[in-house]
Design a protein around this nucleic acid. Structure first.
Lengths: 330, 330
DNA sequence: CTCATCCATGAGAGCGCTCTCACGCACACC
DNA sequence: GGTGTGCGTGAGAGCGCTCTCATGGATGAG
């Protein structure tokens, strides 16, 4: 039978309350009693029961990381995996546990809301939202500390989020192409129902400052869509000499299509991606891309959430800087 | 104030026990009372408190997924991320929650053991163990349902695990090289403190059936180590015409080194990898590799664990089949 | 010497839920 | 009419912890 507070109290010859004080580091305990209790804890191998503790304290010392992607796409893109692992690593040593929650369809949203409201977590990290996502609003209204990854489409006052500088990063990419002498630059834009897609296109446009014609094709961040978009661009603008793809996956697809079309990269066409995933080092040629600080983002999100749970006011959005990683494709 | 069982009971004009019965789907409730209670739950927006429930039931409906890798390597290899996401997806609809736990050093092992024993999870999934890992034994001794990913180095009776057929997969790879007419085949073996490394080398040896000389270099599953090992092999066996790398990451490194050395793949040297990660489609040339069924593995592990938690006897180890995916490198 | 003060400790009331047990009612049987 | 069975329901005792409040002894002030 597992030892409880009472067992320890009996062993140490004190009351349950005193043992509790020792465990929680209360200063109002005499040194001798403290050592006695600690000895009892050690000999019994006592471990506090988390359920009982959180029932009494109305606090769980755990947070949820909510993923909202349909299955297939997620597994190919390392973004989510990295966010998860980085978050988990940030939590090491804080005593806070990470609960992973999948909420893909509407039924699961409702379930999730219930779950969160059941007091099983103290706060929520929302990874990779889509535009129409009702969840932030629900959580906000329920008074659950929440931090979102990526800029929400519609600004919700009182919602803090952490994003990388998508606009600035895309500008960096486009400017790099310009400074390499490219003048007929196209872009494979991301889905326009995600702010990452929107902002990266905006940055691209800003850097190109209205040059005509505007060469844009759209993808959904998947490799296949990158291939389709690249083919479309080659068809519409056969003279293009530079491509900015809104993520590396699509850039990899584009690279393949360009090669098949007989265009040498970077000689005939320069290509820049976005994200700097592991894959970017292995494409042929290795991909010049905009580095997205995923680990830093996860860390920041977690820290914001923890301070918010600790009672601090909701922090302002944080935008992390991006930087260009020059390889061989541009 | 959040509604509790008592609130609902008062609203529905019944006792707390009856409400509990309705919530838990007990058959011993009359239809009219049931609907009344359900109406009360709906109007009050009642959600059961998980902490209270698990305190009373001595069960938490959540499992831990324990990761044991030093940080950096993990982020580049999609394996862990995929395991996590696949596990989480398997759990959708079961009402079981996934708690992610990082246990990298010895201090954290002790903490983990305490954590698990604090009754915060019903069982443990152990991802990617190393040889000297004390954790399975600890968990087994503590009577915690546990399922391990990958064959443990020292067989622990009563420990169930799920692995892919590393031996068979490596054989497949080597046989593919043989049947392509390759006769001077080398291997970049994985770390020999992990059974995946050991078993893949064993399978390779089995397929080559003692042909001499044995051309082996060792890596640690990272790209850089693959490069080093490939360079070493070229140095020692300049006439080699086939390479089996124990994972795709090392194969990608090898491909790079081969190209730099002026060896055409697959014309001069055929290369086969292992894992079939996304990266394998993007190398130059695309990598022929052994597909490892990660999602299937995660699913199987989760199911084994859940049945074990449900009281079923510990299941025998499961070895999932691997298959060769032919692309262009061999 | 008395009274107020302070501090270590204990008693006990919850936190919100589950589950056993007893109760009362309806029905069927002898 | 009594006994037995079955079933829906309620009362109440926990589950293991925290926290408030009371207690009693030591200390210092008046």
């Amino acid at each position: 039978m597992k030892p409880t507070l009472d067992t320890v109290a009996a062993e140490a010859g004190v009351s349950r309350a005193t043992v509790s004080r020792v465990i929680n580091g209360s200063p109002r305990v005499s040194a001798e009693v403290k050592t006695a209790v600690e000895a009892a804890i050690a000999t019994l191998g006592y471990v506090p029961n988390r359920a009982a503790r959180s029932l009494a304290m109305r606090r769980t010392d755990s947070i949820a990381l909510v993923m909202r992607e349909p299955d297939a796409t997620v597994l190919n893109d390392p973004y989510l995996g990295n966010i998860i692992i980085a978050t988990s690593q940030t939590l090491v040593g804080t005593g806070v546990q990470l609960v992973l929650v999948n909420a893909q369809n509407t039924a699961e949203h409702a379930q999730l809301a219930d779950y969160v409201r059941s007091g099983h977590v103290d706060g929520v990290l929302l990874a990779s939202m889509h535009n129409d996502d009702p969840l932030p609003r629900i959580l906000l209204d329920a008074g659950i500390p929440t931090v979102v990854g990526g800029r929400p489409a519609s600004p919700l006052p009182g919602l803090s989020y952490v994003d990388c500088d998508n606009v600035g990063g895309a500008q960096l990419a486009a400017e790099h192409l310009l400074s390499a002498g490219r003048r007929r630059i196209a872009t494979i834009a991301g889905p326009q129902d995600m702010t990452a897609g929107i902002d990266r296109l905006a940055g691209f446009r800003q850097a190109l400052a209205g040059r005509k014609p505007e060469r844009v094709a759209y993808g959904d961040f998947s490799r296949e869509s990158g291939q389709r978009a690249m083919a479309e661009l080659l068809d519409r603008y056969p003279d293009l000499d530079g491509v900015f793809a809104a993520n590396d996956m699509m850039a990899a697809g584009a690279l393949r299509v360009l090669r098949d079309a007989g265009r040498a990269v970077p000689h005939d066409v320069s290509v820049v991606g976005f994200d700097d995933i592991e894959l970017a080092r292995h494409t042929e040629p290795p991909l010049t891309t905009v580095h997205q600080p995923i680990v830093h983002q996860a860390r920041t999100m977690t820290e914001l959430l923890l301070t918010q749970i600790g009672g601090d006011p909701v922090a302002d959005p944080v935008i992390l800087p991006t930087e260009l990683v020059e390889r061989e494709s541009a």
